[in-house]
């Protein structure tokens, strides 16, 4: 079955390499709010925006004004260009507001899926999607599978579990675990429970202890 073939754990290199694009990559960055947004912008800090990861589409919830401000601030600072045209913001309604009735939830999920369809089936669909756990990344990831199942395009999905999750995955993390191409976690406990997860020590918490951190990858 096609769906099985397109799951990342099915290491069918041929299927994947057919869809391998060349840089620059249209990069979709899904922001949550507060802590999620801060962590995501920290992740994006080291990316090459000039040559490789452009244009960038930041996905935010439509009432998240704070993240919107942070994105503009971040892009202006990182690119040093206030008239920077290589990014835009795509707003998506929240799938479920805190305290929203379960009765109206299907309608808001439907709206979130529609907004995700607009994002994924734009003239140029994204080459990769980076997310770190807000619920809003689920509709985006679900829709991004459609071109993959149809054999049109393999949109890479990269998931980074929040620094806040020490010993258990978030609900979003558990849901996306099997479906994303790379699943990164920031605490070593999680790779014991989840063999597909890769450990990434962004905050250098293990730099001084040998045997745990990957010294070849850290740049001191």
């Amino acid at each position: 079955m096609r769906l099985y073939k397109v799951l990342p754990l099915h290491k069918d290199k041929i299927t994947r390499s057919i869809h391998l694009p060349k840089p620059p990559f249209k990069t979709c960055i899904v922001l949550g709010s507060g802590g999620h947004t801060m962590e995501m912008l920290q992740l994006a800090e080291g990316l090459d925006f000039q040559k490789i990861y452009r244009p960038r589409i930041y996905v935010i919830a439509n009432n998240d004004h704070l993240s919107l401000e942070k994105v503009h601030e971040f892009e202006n600072r990182k690119t040093g260009d206030k008239s920077n045209k290589y990014y835009k913001v795509h707003k998506i309604p929240r799938s479920r507001l805190v305290g929203q009735s379960w009765l109206t939830t299907p309608f808001s999920i439907f709206k979130a899926l529609l907004a995700s369809i607009n994002l994924i089936f734009e003239r140029d669909s994204p080459d990769l999607i980076i997310c770190n756990g807000p619920g809003s990344c689920i509709p985006v990831c679900v829709i991004s599978y459609l071109p993959r199942i149809m054999g049109l395009k393999w949109i890479k999905l990269i998931y980074v579990e929040s620094f806040a999750r020490v010993k258990t995955l978030s609900l979003t993390g558990k849901l996306l675990y099997r479906f994303v191409d790379r699943f990164l976690v920031q605490w070593i406990y999680l790779i014991e429970k989840y063999p597909r997860a890769e450990y990434i020590d962004i905050y250098r918490l293990n730099d001084d202890k040998s045997g745990i951190s990957d010294h070849s990858a850290s740049t001191e």
Partner: peptide, 19 residues
């Protein structure tokens, strides 16, 4: 608190994207 490592994530992403 240590300064975050900016290159780790970029390296993983570049590897995944075959850059």
């Amino acid at each position: 608190f240590p300064q975050p490592n900016d290159t780790l994530f970029a390296n993983i992403l570049n590897e995944e994207m075959n850059v």
